[in-house]
Each structure stands twice: as C-alpha cells, then as structure tokens.
C-alpha cells in the first residue's frame, strides 16, 4: 500500500519536470481533474491567470506527454529490473543483466531498419516497436536454438549470445555505412529514450509486462532452490532444466518489450536486484517483484534527473542510468564481502 502511495507521489512530483515547465498548481489541478474524470477542477487552470489557449496546451503537455512518459519509465524500469533479477537468479551470476544474451543487438537491427529505410514516416507509430521486438525475440530464440544441444552449459549459451551480438553489430555497421542518414537516430536509440511514450504504447507495454512479470514471480521458489545448485534443486523437486529455459524465455520477452519501446537502457536491470537483496534479503519471491519496483523508481529518477540537470531538453535516458549505475556497480564489485559471498560463477 505504501508502495502504491509512493508511486502516486512520485508520478505527481515527476509531472512537474519536463521539457516545458508548467506551474505546479496547474500541474496538480490537471492531474486531479484527469484522474477524477473531471469531477475536480472543471476548469483545470482555475485560480490562475493563464489564458484558456495556453491552458489547453498545458493540459496536452501534462496529460498527453509527461504522464505517459512517466508511466513508460515505470513500466520499462520494472521490466528491466525483474528481467535482470530473474537472469541473475537463473545464471547464479550477480553480473547477469537483461542484455546478457545479446537480445539488444537484434532489437537494434530491427530499429535501424525502420530509421534507415524511413518506414515509420509512412506507417503507424507502432512499427518501430514491432520491428525492434521482432528483432530482439528473434535473436533470443536463435541463440537458444543454437545453444540448445548443450543447454546444460551456461557458458555455451552466453558465448553464443556474445558471438551473435558481434555478428549483428557488424551487420548494423554495414547498414549504417551505406545509409548514413539514419545513424544519428540509431545512436539515440542505442542509449535508450522515452520519446515514444503515448497512452497506447503504455497500455500495450503495461499489459505485456504485467503478464510476464507475474509469470516470472511465480518462479521465485524454484529460483531459490536453483541458487543451491542445479543438482540440489533437481533433487528437491525442481525440474531445473525446464525452469531455466522457461525463466530465460520469460525474461527475454520482458526485456524485448522494454527494448521495443525505449531502446537499450543499461544498468537498471543489473543494479536493481542488488539493491533489493541488500534491502530485503535474497528470497527470490521478494527479489523479483522487488527488483521490478526498484527498477521502476530507478528509471523514473533517471528521467527526472535529466530535466533537473538539463532543463528543457530530453537526452537519451541511458546516459543517466549509466552515471548512476556504474559507480554503484563498481562499489558492488569491489566490496570485499559481496565479492566473496556472491562469487562470479
């Protein structure tokens, strides 16, 4: 309950920040008006000296731009957080992150095709996410299929991902070399951004992430046992091989959703599960939903940091997650106790 309250407060406060600064009183009046279905503040700019035309623009900015952007940050942050937590659990490796399997490189190819061949201009806005999603999932499935014969070896899986990612990045370079026009957009995409946010996008992403996150959370007990080793888990009744495959698939799909709408946002998935473990312990029934919550707040904070530090301009959000995430990550890496107890498998 407290978490929901905190989220509401965060959304409200975050609405104060954006490319255009809207007077706080008007922001809260617009939010209350919209949330209450028009019951409160029939005139959303009541009590201020704002002209009706400007007021209409403010409403559009807050309700059509900022709030969808904020919600997308929460949804994608949650997706990356839970996906990172699940992959760290399944690989028993604290350095695992959602892009571990090279999923991002496939998504980038999908997005690059849209940008380079300017498909989006002629078609609906959902083509970019669709291409990125197909690229991500396709890559993920390809890696799993290649590594399947030796699925018992985690190393094979990871190295297959690395190899394929390198190949795809070569393909990307080739595409951009012959079509320099799209390279700036692709660079932006590679650092991630919330620019695609609309209510429609939020709806799709929220539905998908909710289903996938719930499915992942149901594997918490199994992941707890997998931490004790494949064989121990197996002896205690966990079909470790199948659970591993299923969790990798679910986490990859979750990541693909995030990649599709926001590009590649680093460090959220890597850092969030660690924060949860420090705060609430290592029970994966807690770590998974916890990583979703922490990831959501982390990404929203990164968005807000953007507007606080660079008022008026929306920069790639990956820049901010990296600035916050890398120092924290290094702190984790060099802290003695953590290094010895978590190990690097």
């Amino acid at each position: 309950m407290g978490l929901v309250g905190a989220a509401v407060v965060l959304v409200a406060l975050s609405s104060l920040l954006g490319t255009v600064t809207v007077p706080p009183r008007i922001v809260f009046q617009i939010l209350l008006h919209q949330v209450s279905g028009g019951a409160f503040f029939p005139d959303q700019c009541a009590g201020t000296s704002v002209a009706p035309r400007l007021c209409g623009a403010y409403v559009a900015i807050i309700w059509q731009l900022y709030v969808p952007e904020i919600l997308l940050a929460l949804i994608v942050g949650a997706a990356l957080g839970i996906s990172g937590g699940a992959l760290q659990g399944v690989f028993r490796n604290p350095l695992a992150d959602p892009f571990l399997l090279g999923i991002s490189s496939g998504g980038t190819i999908g997005a690059a095709i849209i940008y380079v061949y300017r498909i989006q201009e002629a078609q609906a806005d959902l083509f970019l996410p669709l291409f990125a999603f197909v690229g991500s999932v396709g890559t993920g499935l390809l890696i799993l299929a290649i590594a399947r014969g030796r699925f018992s070896s985690v190393e094979t899986l990871l190295l297959t991902g690395v190899a394929l990612a390198n190949l795809l990045s070569a393909v990307l370079s080739l595409i951009l070399l012959y079509n320099p026009a799209g390279s700036e957009q692709v660079t932006f995409w590679l650092l991630g951004g919330l620019g695609l946010a609309t209510w429609q996008v939020d709806g799709i992403a929220c539905g998908a992430v909710l289903i996938l996150a719930t499915a992942l959370t149901l594997h918490g007990r199994e992941l707890n046992l997998i931490q004790l080793g494949h064989d121990v888990a197996q002896s205690a009744g966990v079909d470790a091989r199948r659970v591993r495959l299923r969790v990798i698939l679910l986490a990859s799909l979750t990541t693909a959703i995030a990649v599709a709408f926001t590009g590649i946002i680093g460090f959220v998935g890597l850092v969030s599960p660690h924060i949860v473990r420090r705060l609430w312990g290592s029970d994966y029934r807690v770590v998974l939903p916890g990583a979703a919550a922490v990831g959501a707040i982390f990404l929203l904070a990164a968005r807000d940091a953007n507007y606080v530090l660079f008022p008026g301009s929306l920069l790639p959000i990956g820049i901010f997650t990296a600035f916050a995430g890398v120092p924290f990550f290094l702190y984790l890496l060099y802290r003695q106790r953590y290094a010895s107890t978590m190990g690097v498998a």
Binding site: R92, N224, Q227, L228, G229, D231, V232, S235, A236, R277, G281, S282, D283, T341, M342, G343
Partner: peptide
Amino acid sequence: VAWVPQGENPRDDV
C-alpha cells in the same frame, strides 16, 4: 527420495 550432497556453496545469506 532426498539427497544430501558432499557440500553446497550457498551464494546468498538465507
């Protein structure tokens, strides 16, 4: 059937 291995290397402090 239950199994007691030679040892376990728990990673997390449960």
